[in-house]
């Protein structure tokens, strides 16, 4: 419509015809676009739904469509000490990595955003650099470094390596918020007599809560799920859940694996809803 409206010449047959042709093309284009978008939506959601569906099957093998309905595989899961231990290990690793990452990231972000010092560009580049590397490289490098200084694979090694891997997420989230924060808020607090420390805790940190929660949640999830770093740094005697699951996926074909996966999907969904309520989903994009 707009084509003919803005033409200065009167709408001749030629113009009208061309308008119709482009209308047909537009309709085809819009249809293709919509079809692909629907495919993408299915691609994003259906695999998880299939895993959940299969976790309730009564058959002893993975098959589609699932047959009957049973919680047996979930029961099996909780009966296996090996898996419970691995889950506990993963929770410990996740908690420790999150605390360590945030403890390093919050002051680092503050220094990088508010500080004026020589080599600030270099420091920021170093702090976000690990994010550009595949987890495998960080895992391998830590393993080698450990071997070099006679430090064995262990939960501690997983935590130290994962913190390197996760630090950039946390720093960038806090930095993003801090950059938007008006420095005058801090100056206002100072001019009212508050110390820098008090200002940081009562004013600055309060404004960063959302970013800290979002960043912390991302680190916690990544540290819990991570396989690429953990595979190289975890001790064979206390394996985190991700490594345990990796072995199960390769060597166990029972629907119990689907049950474990379903639980992880469920947990991720709960975390996301909580995050969306707490800080808003848009925040998660940074």
């Amino acid at each position: 419509m707009s084509e003919t409206m803005t033409t200065s010449r009167p709408a001749t047959a030629d113009v009208a015809e061309r308008g119709n042709a482009s209308k047909v093309i537009d309709r085809i284009g819009a249809t293709i676009l919509a079809i692909i978008a629907v495919c993408t939506v299915l691609l994003l959601s259906v695999p998880s739904l299939i895993v959940i569906a299969i976790s309730f099957t009564e058959t002893a093998y993975i098959g589609f469509p699932p047959q009957g309905f049973t919680f047996q595989w979930y029961a099996d899961l909780f009966a296996r000490d090996q898996i419970i231990d691995a889950a506990v290990t993963s929770l410990q690793i996740s908690a420790a990595t999150t605390c360590l990452s945030l403890a390093l990231a919050i002051p680092a972000a503050y220094g990088l955003v508010r500080g004026r010092f020589f080599g600030r560009g270099f420091a920021s580049a170093l702090i976000v650099a690990p994010q550009m590397l595949p987890g495998m490289v960080i895992g391998v490098a830590t393993l080698f470094f450990g071997a070099y200084i006679a430090f064995r694979q262990s939960n501690l090694m997983v935590i130290l390596a994962l913190t390197v891997f996760c630090l950039p997420f946390a720093v960038r989230m806090v930095m993003a918020r801090l950059t938007q924060l008006d420095p005058a808020l801090e100056e206002a607090s100072l001019s009212m007599g508050a110390s820098k420390t008090r200002t940081f805790f009562e004013i600055t940190a309060r404004q960063l809560v959302g970013a800290i929660i979002a960043g912390g949640a991302f680190v916690a999830i990544e540290a819990f799920d991570n396989l690429t770093v953990a595979l190289f740094t975890a001790s064979p005697r206390s394996r985190p859940l991700s490594v345990e699951l990796y072995n199960l996926v390769q060597f166990d074909s029972s629907p119990m694996v689907a049950a474990l996966s379903s639980l992880e999907i469920l947990a991720a969904f709960v975390v996301m809803i909580v995050l969306a309520k707490a800080v808003g989903l848009d925040r998660l994009r940074t």
Binding site: D182, A184, L185, E187, A188, S189, L190, S191, M192, G193, A194, S195, K196, E202, I203, R206, Q207
Partner: peptide
């Protein structure tokens, strides 16, 4: 340092603490 000078400062965009009420903003100092 500014916190020992006893000056009152009014900022261009006021820099009111968004997480405090008006009364809390005033009571902060």
């Amino acid at each position: 340092p500014p916190n020992q000078r006893g000056v009152g400062f009014v900022f261009q965009n006021y820099a009111l603490f968004p997480h405090m009420t008006v009364a809390e903003n005033l009571a902060y100092g």
